[in-house]
């Protein structure tokens, strides 16, 4: 299966990069990290017997770069929308991010809503119900994780890989290939017709 692009979205300081790094640090003997950059990660995840390679893109969370984020959404198969459970605003802002994402990609995308910093239970401001309601509303799955302790991180990515795999299988369209073949065939036809014309002309002469 080809590499599947996943984008990490969310307000600044919610812990996108921390989740990213935690996923990188958790060792799986079966899973192989092929490429790594501080903001880009390629990792193979095994789902049952099949393997899927996720190429995960970390995105800028600062408000001043908001306008640049749509550039990162292109061709993505999944998005992990991260909010901070100690910050209600971070969950509220997710709706804007979602709208922006769907403007760019459409509805064909796997969505995960992830509440980070689950280890700070005492400081929790966002209720699980609110988050789950939002998830249901947009057809996403909700997870509470802690990048600090590593809680639920692997489970979340495993579930994501599973859903991406399913999504890709369901939306597999051979349109591109047929189109291109058609195009190539057209060119070939043109060549042949040109040849025939030439031959005819030669015959006349």
């Amino acid at each position: 299966m080809k590499k599947q692009k996943v984008v990490l979205l969310g307000k600044g300081r919610v812990g996108k990069t921390s989740i990213f790094k935690r996923f990188l640090q958790n060792e799986f003997h079966d899973n192989e990290v092929t490429t790594i950059q501080p903001q880009y990660l390629e990792k193979q995840v095994k789902v049952n017997t099949e393997k899927v390679t996720l190429s995960i893109w970390d995105t800028a969370g600062q408000e001043r770069f908001r306008g640049l984020n749509p550039l990162f959404y292109r061709n993505s198969k999944a998005a992990i929308m991260v909010y901070d459970i100690t910050d209600q605003e971070s969950l509220d802002s997710l709706e804007d991010w979602l709208a922006e994402l769907k403007n760019q990609v459409g509805h064909k995308i796997v969505l995960m809503i992830v509440g980070n910093k689950s280890d700070l239970k005492k400081k929790r401001q966002v209720s699980i119900e609110d988050a789950e309601n939002l998830a249901k509303k947009v057809g996403a799955q909700h997870f509470c994780v802690s990048a600090k302790t590593g809680e639920n991180i692997d489970e979340m990515f495993h579930e994501l890989a599973k859903r991406v795999m399913k999504f890709v299988k369901e939306n597999k369209t051979p349109l591109n290939t047929t189109k291109s073949r058609r195009n190539f065939a057209l060119v070939n036809e043109d060549v042949e017709t040109k040849k025939k014309k030439k031959k005819n002309n030669d015959g006349c002469c």
């Binding site: 600044g12 990069t17 501080p38 903001q39 970390d58 995105t59 800028a60 600062q62 640049l68």
Partner: peptide, 8 residues
């Protein structure tokens, strides 16, 4: 500190 924001 080398996150996506600073990278840009």
């Amino acid at each position: 500190l080398l996150n996506a924001d600073n990278y840009i």
